Amino acid sequence: MELAERKQKILSAVVENFIKTGEPVGSKTLIDETDLKVSSATVRNDMADLTQKGYLVQPHTSAGRIPTQQGYRYYVDNLMKIVAVSQRGRELVEDKLYRNAESPENILKSAADLLSELTGLTAVATTPNSAESRIHKISFVQTGSHTAMTVVIASNGIIKNQLFRCEFIITPEILEVFDKALNELFDGVRLSSINRPFIQTAAARFGELSLFMPSVLTAIKDAADKANEVGIFLSGQTKPLFMQNVNFLAARNVIELLSRKGDLAGVLTSLPIGTSVSIGTENSRIELAYSSVISSSYSVKDTPSGTLAVIAPIRTDYGRVISIIECISECVSKIISELIEH
């Protein structure tokens, strides 16, 4: 429903004042803090109409108004102003992320920590999408006379290790044979295709050499399985307990959801591409009914790949949080893409 300009100003002022103070907003405050050239009675009538339409609520008979979830939704979609992070701020974000740019996982862990630090909220980051990811390279590192580690590097930059043991003594020459034969076989193979039947077929192709490879092939499959999973990095998990006017039951529900990585991954992977805001009951999980999820997807080589998100109280400074999360997301896109290209 489209609101008239004056009612938009009133709704915007109520939302922004309530975000700032946490106190119900009355007509006198609105007139003092806005450029409305109307009487208090007119403002009260408009506030009453916004209340009737479901955008505001009056918590007590003599109190002012506070926004409803519907009011926040209209504000975010139509009225909110976003001020981009300054160039200096962006440079500081990039500098912190570059310090941990050894792998996408390290970059994303740093991004979650930085996002939580800057917003004061619980932050989450997911690893790059593995749906189309393929084997880029397999390396081997000897760890003992009978043990070694396979290192699987995926095309999305994810690196996973898996130890294996052989009954025979492993030598550098044997690892060189494994390296050449297995990179030829696995190069460009989609991670999701590396299942047990694929491994059995691969073993059959090597003939007598396959007698030396069961544990190696199993290790590659296990590493590929790990690379194919959605990885999640959390920061500020306990912050919901320390928000102003905290609802401890709601905070506990959020923290319990954060502990269930599978359920949390389901929430994050279902978020739309780009920047999105899900408010209260719009969220797919009942544990988030009193929270807002603000997210921004990042890209790897111009392809949407993973998600950065914060879990916030419904009363939160949406414009500021979106500005920060978009800045960090853009920097993550740049740095992971550069890492993979090299």
Score class of each variant (00 low, 15 high):
254 V>M: 14
13 A>P: 02
72 Y>A: 08
219 A>M: 05
39 S>W: 00
198 F>Y: 12
11 L>T: 02
102 E>C: 04
60 H>V: 11
337 S>H: 01
273 I>P: 00
53 K>L: 15
236 G>Y: 11
128 P>F: 07
288 L>F: 06
1 M>K: 07
246 V>H: 10
137 K>T: 09
292 S>G: 11
9 K>W: 07
3 L>Y: 05
188 G>A: 09
291 S>R: 09
315 R>Y: 00
200 Q>V: 13
224 A>V: 06
167 E>K: 13
113 D>W: 04
330 E>W: 00
3 L>N: 10
154 A>N: 02
336 I>T: 12
340 I>R: 04
58 Q>H: 02
170 I>Y: 05
120 G>E: 14
107 I>D: 01
297 S>E: 05
245 N>A: 15
255 I>T: 08
38 V>E: 11
174 I>K: 08
295 S>F: 10
98 Y>D: 10
255 I>N: 04
162 Q>N: 05
127 T>K: 00
163 L>P: 05
306 G>N: 04
106 N>D: 09
140 F>L: 01
333 S>P: 03
33 E>A: 07
93 V>D: 05
282 E>A: 13
37 K>T: 10
297 S>T: 15
188 G>L: 10
249 L>S: 13
102 E>T: 14
206 F>H: 11
244 Q>K: 11
87 Q>N: 13
225 D>F: 03
226 K>H: 03
3 L>C: 01
